[in-house]
Write a protein that binds this DNA or RNA. Structure first.
Length: 741
DNA sequence: TTGAGGCTTTCAACA
DNA sequence: AAAGCCTCAA
């Protein structure tokens, strides 16, 4: 059988990276330099040419989705055997390791993973116990402080911890930290940082576990190495120390997660750290046209703290960049949408070819509104995860409590959901009882201990529900399927019945989400026939919104993509809109006071620009409304860093809200296509409202109704609606997502 | 003591 | 828009 050698499809440096299989290897891979291809080919090469069994290869990617994609591509090269390569994210690899060996360092097998929200709940709880006001000291700030400390090398290496503990007026941070860790451990829970830290601890305290792991994996590949933190660095180091076959891939210009503890020194010092490191640079860019790469370079070269390098464009010249400053955020969105419409008309582009990037999730709203108005399908990546929705979190809390009865955060979440007559006072006494007896809340309930002299009826029925769930889950997977158990539990809670009774637009959508959740359990079961509850819960808590059940909109292949620049890492699109290019937004206000902060924002901007294959539109607004009010915005400094001569500059002034529409023409640049599409857009009417009286509308919560009156103006348009049942209600237009019927 | 409804506040990026 | 806090009726 003759087959083309895959190596023929690579350039010399790519080939070098693929064939250098033994010993430490550092691949400095610029944006668009065929990095993923190198990694997949290298895995294929190890298996096919070097005879390495696939299960001996350990690869880390940034998201679970990227991991699946990598497996798929390897399988494409060498057949289904490629599926057995171990490809995961760091966090999911840590879960894998801790499930097997965690008990050796006191991590229970069915540990619960606390996400940022759970962390906050727990901290708020601790603050209340300490008689501190969570309104004065924000739990979210404390949670991120705790994460920040845990990410630091000093935390793991045990240097002077007290220096890390910040001062808060009226709060001893060390006490809080200790209590937080104590509560996690008593709840059998780990936060995201702990997943990594405990894995390091395991490798240090249990050499025999490390030896077993080293026997299992012999080749290691780490993608996005510039974004690893200290714990991740140590995991790489320990795992690879037996064979020294550690290959890391990264680009210091694309380091954008220092706020999550990423330490750029990991990549900068790699050569010094690992003896006899082979370094391969991939500097040929196959993705973007010359103007795009030029602009990206002109931005990133302003960073002092970087290795000097410049990508070579393999593709030729292309369209110039466009910089458009609109009057406000609505104008910006109109410009983006009208440009998409006109480009689609002119060229054979599909919706999936377009991406709109923004710095903060909150910016997506206006784009969504505009795309919906124009009936253009879109999908929002990131933002609220499916598993973050209230009804799903409730069901998950039940499941988590069943899998791990020590999980206090989950218990307190659902003890009275749906309402069963257990109020704040009862909960308070339950906790007192537990605290005094030094047992968990669940134990108090399970043992039927008296709360305020008797056992309240609500507590008894709660106990029955959980016990019914526990009994069912004990049968999983041998005699009962996971999905059947989940159904049984939902049945026991009467969660569905309660929503059915409510019978609102909102409750119907919640019911649909619960259906969708059950479907996702079926899917999981199909993939892992011996699916058990604890493992299912651990895996879904690591999923991103992209990987959640309903991430796919009406037709994912035919949708425009909306996402933050952070989420865009590793992706590419023919047409990119990099929006909100304003001082205070991008670079973000909170990063603007230090050089390091600005340099990271600049790298983020570089990442955004280099996602574009053929065209990029940079946009911004002159005025923008945020929660703090209306404010004037200077163009981002990054715009000034791109040579003006290489950009097509224009203004857009049609965007309608209260701000006065500027005198300038909608388009003062020579971009003919965009004008035609203005027809499709429907600027707001006289008082700034997009509605008229007597018009039929759909309210997300109250359903169909008819507009009775529109009062006020500017951003304070009030709309009064009569609903089908005769109810009259008034809403502020800016906060109410009314749909025309 | 509970639960519903209204008023206020909040938004930086993520596994 | 959504969550949290507060108030008030039952």
């Amino acid at each position: 059988m003759t087959q083309r050698d895959p190596l023929d499809e690579l350039n010399p440096s790519q080939r070098e990276a693929v064939t250098h299989t033994e010993g430490p290897l550092l691949i400095l891979a610029g944006a668009g330099s065929g990095k993923t291809r190198v990694i997949t080919y290298r895995i294929a090469h190890l298996i096919r040419q070097k005879g390495v069994p696939p299960f001996e290869i350990f690869a880390v990617t940034f998201t679970n989705k990227a991991a699946d994609e990598m497996k798929r591509r390897v399988a494409e090269l060498i057949g289904p055997i490629g599926e057995s390569v171990f490809v995961r994210t760091f966090h999911s690899a840590a879960v894998y390791i801790l499930r097997r060996y965690g008990d050796r360092i006191g991590v229970p097998r069915a540990f619960t993973i606390y996400d940022a929200k759970d962390q906050e709940t727990l901290i708020k709880d601790i603050l209340l116990e300490m008689r501190l006001d969570p309104k004065k000291i924000k739990p979210s700030a404390l949670a991120s402080k705790i994460s920040e400390i845990k990410d630091r090398a000093e935390m793991i290496e045990g240097a002077d911890l007290s220096s890390l503990m910040p001062g808060y007026p009226g709060l001893n941070f060390s006490d809080l930290y200790r209590e937080y860790q104590d509560r996690l451990s008593r709840s059998g829970a780990l936060d995201f940082n702990d997943l990594l830290i405990k894995t390091v601890v395991l490798m240090r305290r249990s050499p025999e576990s490390l030896t077993e792991l080293q026997r299992r994996w012999r080749y290691f590949m780490i993608d996005e190495y510039q974004d690893t933190n200290h714990a991740q660095y140590l995991i790489c180091k320990y795992l690879s120390s037996a064979t020294r076959n550690l290959c890391v891939v990264g680009d210091d210009d694309q380091s954008i997660y220092s706020w999550r503890g990423a330490d750029i020194r990991n990549i900068l010092d790699f050569e010094r750290d690992f003896d006899e490191t082979k370094v391969v640079k991939l500097e040929e860019n196959y993705r973007s046209t010359v103007p795009i790469l030029d602009a990206a370079w002109h931005v990133i070269r302003n960073n002092v703290n970087r290795k000097e390098k410049r990508l070579r464009a393999v593709r030729g010249d292309g369209e110039p960049l466009t910089w458009c400053r609109a009057n406000n955020e609505y104008g910006e969105a109109e410009y983006v949408v009208s440009t998409i419409l006109s480009l689609k008309k002119k060229e054979a582009l599909r919706n999936r070819d377009f991406a709109v990037f923004y710095r903060t999730n909150a910016q997506s709203r206006v784009f969504e509104e505009m795309l919906r108005r124009e009936n253009i399908p879109y999908r929002v990546v990131g933002g609220l995860k499916f598993y973050d929705r209230k009804e799903i979190k409730d069901i998950l809390a039940y499941l988590r409590l069943i899998a791990n009865p020590a999980d206090g955060v989950s218990l307190l979440r659902i003890i009275n959901v749906p309402a069963r007559g257990i109020g704040a006072a009862t909960v308070e006494r339950l906790r007192d009882t537990a605290y005094t007896a030094e047992i968990t809340e669940w134990e108090v309930i399970a043992r039927g201990l008296a709360i305020k002299g008797k056992v309240p009826a609500g507590i008894t029925s709660f106990k029955k529900i959980i016990e019914r769930g526990m009994a069912a889950s004990a049968l999983v997977p041998e005699t009962m399927k996971l999905s059947a158990m989940v159904r049984e539990l939902i049945e026991a809670t009467s969660y569905r019945e309660n929503l059915e009774e409510e019978n609102s637009v909102e409750s119907r959508s919640r019911l649909e989400n619960i259906e969708e959740f059950i479907n996702s359990v079926y899917e999981y079961e199909a993939r892992y026939p011996d699916a058990a509850l604890d493992r299912f819960l651990q895996e879904i808590s690591l999923l991103t919104s992209e990987e959640s059940p309903d991430a796919e909109g009406p037709d994912p292949l035919n949708s425009i993509t909306l996402m933050t620049v952070h989420n865009a890492k590793g992706l590419e699109f023919p047409v990119v809109f990099l929006t909100g290019m304003e001082e205070g937004i991008f670079p973000h206000f909170n990063s603007s006071d230090t050089d390091a902060g600005i340099e990271e924002e600049r790298r983020l901007c570089y990442v955004g620009i280099t996602r574009a294959m053929d065209r990029i539109f940079l946009t911004g607004a002159e005025m923008r409304r945020s929660y703090s009010g209306l404010s004037y915005k200077e163009p981002s400094r990054f715009i000034a860093e791109i040579p003006a001569a290489t950009m097509d500059v224009r203004e857009y002034g049609e965007g309608g809200y209260s701000a006065p529409v500027r005198d300038s023409l909608p388009f003062n640049g020579p971009y003919p296509g965009a004008v035609t599409s203005a027809v499709a857009l429907n600027p707001t009417g006289g008082n700034g409202s997009r509605f008229r009286t007597r018009e039929a509308v759909l309210h997300p919560k109250y359903g169909r109704g008819r507009i009775l009156a529109i009062e006020g103006g500017g951003d304070n348009v009030k709309i009064t609606i009569v609903f089908g049942n005769g109810d009259k209600k008034t809403f502020l237009e800016k906060y109410t997502p009314l749909q025309k019927l």
